[in-house]
Amino acid sequence: MTSPILRLEDVHKSYGALQVLKGVSLTVQPREVVVLVGPSGSGKSTLLRCINLLNPPTKGRIWLEDQEITAPGVNQDRVRQRIGMVFQEFNLFTHLTALGNVMIGLVKVRKMRKNEARDLAMFELERVGLADRANYYPAQLSGGQKQRVAIARALGMDPHIMLFDEPTSALDPELTGEVLAVMQKLASEGMTMIVVSHEMGFARQVADRIVFMEGGVVVEEGTPQQMFEQPRHERTRAFLRNIAQ
């Protein structure tokens, strides 16, 4: 048994009086693909932002590989380099080309020389099938292309784990396929991934494990087969039946 790549222990997050996460514990193994599902407001996105410390937990502990990243004195910027994140709204840097979006982290954060950074950035754009769009600005790209550039940008940092926050929710249905295909390819290459998504087809095909959250806690988790065919909780059954339609 390998040691887990990510371990969450009783993670809480509140904003003032509002409790969003009420004690989430989760373990993710290397190369595992975990799909987080649950009704809106159940705390899935908040959980992702706790994991990469964009919104650090108010209580509880998180380990990334051997390091407790919630410990005081941890360099959070260094932690985030190891955790790639893809957003629902893409958040591409509007003043930079596709290539520039991928390069800037390499130059500013990984301190690579420009030539090296350009080569690696082109490689990452090829990986998501957008080498021919390298010099386009975000405004000149379709939604699906934008999201693929965003994935390339995250991959450029050589992350140990990737977080996807509803990566296809803002896309027209005909554009979701190209993004899901890239994600599927990443999974097959062995990338560890946590995906918040309502794409049940993707979950069924690609996920090693599905985690159902509601009201800030994990209600149930299991393999896609277990979860879709023999869920133990009535809530899980109802939610998955609903969303499948």
């Binding site: 964009l54 985030r80 380099q81 955790i83 790639g84 840097f93 500013k108 954060v109 940092m157």
Partner: peptide
């Protein structure tokens, strides 16, 4: 605001994110 968040997410410090993004 997403620009700042995305910059921080790839490991930029606050100052770097302000300067470069």
């Amino acid at each position: 605001p997403g620009q700042m968040i995305a910059a921080r997410a790839i490991g930029m410090s606050r100052l770097q994110a302000i300067q470069s993004i």
